[in-house]
Amino acid sequence: MKIKAKVYVLGDNIDTDQIIPAQYLNLVPTIKSEYDKLGSYAMAGLPETAIPFVDSATGKSPYGIMIAGRNFGCGSSREHAPVALGAAGCKAVIAESYARIFFRNSVATGEVYPFETPVSLVSEFKTGDEAELDVGSGTLMRLSDGKVFPLKSLGAVAPVVEAGGMFGYARKVGMIKS
């Protein structure tokens, strides 16, 4: 599968309070209208000087791919974080490394692909650049000049990602009945 989208670029240690501030945790992700509402607040905790991630007119993000540095998603266990990104229309995060609960929540929910990179790509892109993610081959192409950046293999979680999340995987391996 290939995902062609505009990228949104961030630095290191982006915490879950920046991804979805705690005041919106009264919204329940499994209620459809509140799932959509969470998307409209994605990245609302970034400093006020940041480029808006979500278009306030539509409640959706024009950025389908997030590029970040180290320790993306540190802090809280709130699953509202990958849910907010997914609900806003973001398909993948490409970071140098992840905080483990955010990574696990991304895999378990299937809301966003959490790819790691061997080296930081933060300086290779700027917000608004177009890129194409090839999920199958694990590469990211910068469309302005066609330069291809390799991503790390998903490793042990690849089967869970392929199954669409934790429940799909557990059914596949017979841990729960279909």
């Binding site: 929910t109 429940f167 557990a170």
Partner: peptide, 20 residues
């Protein structure tokens, strides 16, 4: 350890969790 809703929903139903 802490987890998100999906893992917790899984534990709630099965009493099991996949741990690395």
């Amino acid at each position: 350890t802490g987890v998100g809703n999906t893992d917790a929903g899984f534990v709630m139903g099965t009493g099991k969790m996949l741990v690395k």
